[in-house]
Design a protein around this nucleic acid. Sequence first.
DNA 1: TCAAATAGATTACGGATGTAATATGTTTTT
DNA 2: AAAAACATATTACATCCGTAATCTATTTGA
Lengths: 131, 131
Amino acid sequence: MQKLPQISDAEWQVMKAIWSQAPCTANQVIEYLSEIVTWQPKTIKTLINRLLKKKVLGFKIDPQDKKTYHYYPLLSEKECVRAESQSFLHRVFDGLPQIMLANFIEECELSREDIAGLKQILEEKEQKKTT
Amino acid sequence: MQKLPQISDAEWQVMKAIWSQAPCTANQVIEYLSEIVTWQPKTIKTLINRLLKKKVLGFKIDPQDKKTYHYYPLLSEKECVRAESQSFLHRVFDGLPQIMLANFIEECELSREDIAGLKQILEEKEQKKTT
DNA sequence: TCAAATAGATTACGGATGTAATATGTTTTT
DNA sequence: AAAAACATATTACATCCGTAATCTATTTGA
C-alpha cells in the first residue's frame, strides 16, 4: 500500500476517459469529455499535463504519426478507486465502512434489482467467511 | 438541494469535533482533536475561522465569560455527509450508487454482524418499496 | 496598577486546483 | 518554400488548503 498521487476532481474526469479508451490521444479525450463537461480543449490539455507530471499517465509516440502522443494510465482504475474510497471513508465516516454502507443504502435510490444484487453479494461474502 | 460550502479535509476534522460537542469553545475543539491529529492550536483556530467565514459555524458569547466564544454548527452533520457523499459518488462512480455499494461491500472488512445488519437494512428498504 | 497570559483577528506562504491563454515547434497545405 | 494548422510546453492567475505566526485587545494574576 504505497501513496498514490492526489487526483483532483477535474483530473478524475480525464482519467475516466483514459481508462475507458487507452491508449488514446488528447483529442480523443477531448471528444469523450465533450459529452460530460464544458471545458475548453486547452483546459483538458492542462489536466493531461498535470497527470503526466504526477506520473499518473504516460505516453507513447506512434512512428507513423510522430506528432501526436498516445496516453495511457500508469495507475489502474481499481487502485485509484480504492485510494479515493479510503480517503472518503476516513474523512467522513471515521474509516468505518459499516456506517458508511448503512448510510448510503438508506439514502440512495435503489431498484428492486439493485437490492437483490447487493443482497447476493453480501451472501457471497458471508459464504467466503464460513469456508 | 442547495449548494453547501466546500469543507476541506482538515475542516472536516474540526466539524466532527464540533458536531459531537456543540456548543463548545476553541479549546474544547483543540483538546478533542489532540487525540486525533497533531496540529498546533493556532492551526485549529485558523480552521475554525475559515468555517466561520464559510458560514458553516456560528458562535455565541456567554455573558459570564465574554472572552471565550462558544461555537456551534450552522449545518447539520447529516446534510454535510450527504453532500460529501454525493460528490464522491459522482467523482468516482459516475453517480451510480449500485456500483459503489457493490464495490465497497467486496473490498471492505465486514464482520458477520455487519453483514447481517446490512441485509436487514436492505430488506427494510425493499419492504418500503412494496407497501 | 502593570505585566503576563490568553482569546480572537489578521497576515503569511508555498503548493494544489480550476480554468485557460500564449509560446514554440512540427506538419501539412498551397 | 512560406503560410497555416495543429500538437505539445510553458505561463497565468485567482482561490483554496495546510499549516502556522504575529498582532491586538482584553482579562487576570502579582
